[in-house]
């Protein structure tokens, strides 16, 4: 007989996991570390300084907003740290520190906190800040040669610049760097985006920790791979053209770490696949036909804006209703026979 004295009445949810926002954010930060290590090797200690400064600025702005708006301090959930690292990863290593500070302020105050803080922003803060920082297009597209000595704190001047693999691809030629160099990250580009392998390692860790699922990264990268394989430009061999596109620019960083942001991506698996395919299509379109060489950040931002629409079209059906429908169909099929 059931002992009713032990049965408790309470409202849902009845099953809770130990997962917290902080734990997830910490996992993301850990997953970004290999890319940071490669970046320090490729661009020198300045990339560590920029990343740390960006993280501190983001924490500062979130704390400041809490004080100004008389809201509880939310810096403890570590989401601003992730924004800080991602923002730094999206900047060239030669970016002056004041620009990092402005970007952090825009990301945290305008894009995140004004819309209600974590879980309520409709765009990825780090990417929106990158778009804002294109106010200074020259700084944002100055790519220093790999392994150049850079001053740690002051703004570097007269650096030896070099073209990124993407600018070669834009002109319809294969990059001068080998595919191996591109995979390892020994090419110029934004601070944290160059090493596809380090980012993939981080992605595998996130998959293992079940922070992300494969839907968005796979559909995103898959779309780019298929399109670039089917339509190589400048008469280049399709295989190496496709690999060069996959390994260059911010594609890995975007597909693994930024398109998968919980707040700004769809909830359902179907929606996530649509979202990923949309990102992939836009990225290839911008890379092929746009005026910028890179399109990852804009395509993710544009798809962020489409998320509410995607959600509306992918509302899951009630299972009972589904069964009724299939039953009806079977009955009709039986009748016609």
């Amino acid at each position: 007989m059931l002992d009713l004295s032990k049965v408790q009445v309470s409202s849902s949810p009845h099953i809770r996991s130990d997962e917290t926002t902080k734990q997830i954010m910490l996992d993301v930060v850990i997953a970004l570390m290999p890319a940071l290590a490669v970046s320090i090797f490729v661009f020198g200690w300045r990339s560590l300084i920029i990343t740390l400064f960006s993280v501190c600025s983001c924490i500062f702005f979130e704390w400041l907003y809490g004080i100004l708006a008389k809201r509880p301090n939310t810096t403890g959930d570590m989401s601003c740290m992730v924004t800080g690292v991602l923002l730094a990863f999206n900047l060239p290593v030669t970016a002056p520190l004041w620009m990092v500070f402005v970007g952090a302020g825009f990301a945290i105050i305008v894009v995140k906190m004004l819309f209600g803080g974590i879980g309520k922003n409709f765009m990825n803060p780090a990417l929106a800040a990158r778009a804002f920082l294109f106010s200074w297009p020259v700084i944002m597209t100055t790519w220093v040669k790999t392994r150049t000595e850079l001053p740690l704190f002051t703004t570097p001047v007269d650096v030896v610049t070099s073209a990124t693999p993407l600018s070669y691809l834009k002109n319809g030629v294969l990059p001068d760097a080998s595919l191996l160099d591109m995979a390892l990250g020994m090419v110029s580009g934004c601070l944290g985006e160059t090493s596809a392998l380090a980012l993939l390692a981080g992605g595998l860790y996130l998959l293992y920790r079940r922070v992300i699922t494969l839907h968005i990264p796979l559909s995103y990268l898959g779309t780019v791979a298929v399109l670039t394989y089917l339509f190589p430009r400048g008469g280049l061999p399709a295989g190496s053209f496709m690999l060069a596109h996959l390994l260059s620019g911010g594609l890995m960083l975007g597909a693994i770490f930024m398109a998968t942001d919980y707040t700004t991506s769809p909830l359902t698996k179907k929606g996530q696949v649509i979202f990923g395919i949309g990102c992939g299509l836009l990225t290839v379109f911008i890379r092929y036909f746009g005026s910028y060489a890179e399109g990852v950040s804009y395509s993710i931002l544009i798809m962020n804006a489409f998320v509410p629409l995607i959600e509306r079209f992918t509302v899951p059906k009630n299972p009972a209703e589904k069964r009724k429908l299939s039953f009806k169909k079977a009955k009709e099929a039986g009748k016609s026979e």
Partner: peptide, 15 residues
């Protein structure tokens, strides 16, 4: 001072 070009672009108008 390095002007923030975004503000005189359309997006800056909305912001």
């Amino acid at each position: 001072y390095q002007p923030a070009m975004l503000l005189i672009l359309p997006a800056g108008g909305f912001l």
